[in-house]
Each structure stands twice: as structure tokens, then as C-alpha cells.
């Protein structure tokens, strides 16, 4: 039975992630008074890209060729290592928040190298910006995680989401501060406004799109899919660490049903907030971004200062 849940968990991330992107695009289109593409369009895009031929630069090495597979693999591993719909599943082997942070770093490492590999100025600058943003974001990410783990007394993500709802206890303030800190990092790490514009290829705004400019075909599909996975994982982490409402605490049918439904509704909520932010504010100038990241860092540090162990 447990094996069955793990397989669902394994499939859930890649299966649901393109939907999130589709929903965000749809909401943004509505804000812009457009009809917009269907919410399943990202699936069709991935399918289409999978069936296209590829063009690879003669300058590219095996790093460029293997990076999409490695990046996609890291997102699958992280998808297995975090609580999605059930906290009774216990992953004491990779379900640690530092493992999650550094496995994403592994993906970032190869993505940034792949950006430099083709030798175009675009890719190089995209990599430089990505490395800068993720270097600063890592501090905020780890500290916001630590704020929660200091309160609950563990770094295991499943145990944290099992321990209960922080917001309804006396830890409301630190948990809320840490969540705001985390949310800023979510926007930064997944390449969303105000950090990056996922919709354009303008050289002034782009980070993620610049690095993957030379990719095509299957490899592009994998990278886009991995980016969607990353968004889904960050959204799931945000809702399950800070608002673990409804997450299945036992393997009963009812609890599981509520768990899955709660996950979908909460992630839909995160998608709405992200879409709202993208529709209502402008992208920040690159050198204003560190300010935002350092705010996240400080918020989380304050959250740790305010928190005590349960």
C-alpha cells in the first residue's frame, strides 16, 4: 500500500505541474482582457516539443546535452522528498529540508553551466544573473525553513507538516514572517515577477529564458517541464509547511481524499496569488532584486529570533 502512495507521489509532481503554469497563464490572460490559451496548453507544448527535431551548437559539450536530464531528475527527487498530500508517509532518507535546498542547487548548477556552454553572450549573462539570484536566495530559503524547524524541532519536512498548523498557535507571528520570507524566495527561485519575466525573451528582463535560449526539441521540453515542476514543488512546500490544513494524517480513504483536494485547492490559491502579482506589478530592476532577497533573509532571521521550541 505504501509503495502505491509513493508511486502516486512520484507521478504527482510532473503530472500536475504543467497545469499550474496553465492556470497562471489563464488568470493573467483574463486580467489582460484576453481569452487566453486553455489551461492544458502547457501539456500540449511539452508534447509538441518532444516531437520536434533539435539543433545543437557545435560549441556545446556534454554538459549542455546532459543538463536537461539532470535538472529534470533533481525536480523528481525533490518531488519525492516533500510532503504533498499525505504527511503519514515518512521519508527519513531524503526528506530533509537541506537536501531539498541543495538538490535544487544541483539543478541550478547544471542549468547555469548549460547557459554558458554554447558561448553566446545571452546564455552567459543569464547564467551570471541566475547564479547571483540563487546565491542570495539560498540564504533566505534555508533560514525560512529553519524558522519552522526551530519551532517544531526537526528538519524533516514530513514531520513538520505532520506537527500541525502553526498559524493557529502562539507561533503565528514567526510562522507568518517566515512564510513571507519563503514566498519571496518562491518568486525568485521559480523565475516569476518581480524577479524574472517568464513570458519574454527580451535581453533586459530575462534570466531563466536567457540560459535556455539555445535549447530546442526534447531538451527544451524537459527544461520547461522541470521549471514547472520546480514551481509546483515550491508551491506545495509553501502550503504544506506553513498551512498544512487538510493534509492526510492517516491512510484512510476519507483523509486521503481530503488531502488531495486540500493540496489542489491550496496550490490553486498560490497560483492565483502569483498571477495576481504578475498582473499588478512591474518587474524590478536587476540591482533592486538583492534588496528584496535580503528582506526575505532578515524576515526569516527575525522569525527565528521570535520562535521557541514547542
Amino acid at each position: 500500500m505504501t509503495i502505491f502512495f509513493w508511486i502516486i507521489q512520484l507521478i504527482a509532481t510532473p503530472a500536475l505541474s504543467p497545469l499550474c503554469i496553465g492556470i497562471i497563464k489563464k488568470i493573467k490572460a483574463k486580467f489582460q482582457n484576453r481569452q487566453g490559451a486553455s489551461i492544458v496548453q502547457p501539456y500540449k507544448d511539452i508534447w509538441k516539443l518532444m516531437h520536434k527535431d533539435e539543433v545543437i551548437s557545435p560549441d556545446a559539450s556534454w554538459i549542455f546535452r546532459s543538463a536537461p536530464y539532470i535538472i529534470f531528475t533533481t525536480t523528481i527527487i525533490v518531488g519525492l522528498s516533500i510532503p504533498l498530500f499525505a504527511s503519514f508517509l515518512k521519508n527519513a532518507l531524503t526528506g530533509d529540508l537541506l537536501v531539498v535546498a541543495y538538490t535544487f542547487a544541483l539543478g541550478t548548477f547544471f542549468l547555469a553551466l548549460a547557459g554558458m556552454d554554447t558561448g553566446s553572450a545571452f546564455g552567459g549573462f543569464g547564467s551570471s544573473r541566475e547564479a547571483t539570484i540563487s546565491a542570495l536566495a539560498e540564504g533566505g530559503l534555508i533560514l525560512s525553513f529553519f524558522a519552522v524547524s526551530v519551532i517544531i524541532g526537526t528538519t524533516n519536512l514530513f514531520t513538520i507538516s505532520r506537527a500541525g498548523i502553526l498559524l493557529s498557535t502562539s507561533f503565528f507571528l514567526p510562522a507568518m514572517l517566515a512564510f513571507i520570507g519563503f514566498f519571496i524566495i518562491l518568486l525568485a527561485e521559480t523565475g516569476r515577477f518581480p524577479f524574472d519575466n517568464p513570458a519574454t525573451h527580451l535581453e533586459l528582463t530575462m534570466i531563466h529564458e536567457a540560459m535556455i535560449l539555445e535549447y530546442s526539441g526534447k531538451k527544451l521540453a524537459l527544461i520547461e517541464w522541470a521549471a514547472a515542476n520546480k514551481f509546483f514543488i515550491f508551491a506545495a512546500l509553501g502550503v504544506n509547511l506553513f498551512f498544512p490544513y487538510g493534509i492526510a494524517q492517516s491512510a484512510s480513504m476519507g483523509a486521503l481524499f481530503i488531502g488531495v483536494a486540500a493540496l489542489l485547492i491550496k496550490i490553486l490559491g498560490i497560483c492565483c496569488i502569483v498571477a495576481l502579482i504578475e498582473s499588478s506589478m512591474a518587474k524590478l530592476r536587476f540591482f533592486r532584486l538583492p534588496d528584496l532577497l535580503i528582506i526575505s533573509f532578515i524576515l526569516s532571521a527575525v522569525a527565528i529570533g521570535l520562535s521557541q521550541t514547542l
Binding site: T118, G217, K218
Partner: peptide, 13 residues
């Protein structure tokens, strides 16, 4: 997925 895929070598943009 798509075993027939061709990989072309083309210069960096």
C-alpha cells in the same frame, strides 16, 4: 518518446 528525432548541428545564435 519520438525515436525518430534528428539532432542537427547549427551555430549558436
Amino acid at each position: 518518446v519520438n525515436k525518430k528525432q534528428k539532432i542537427n548541428i547549427g551555430a549558436t545564435w
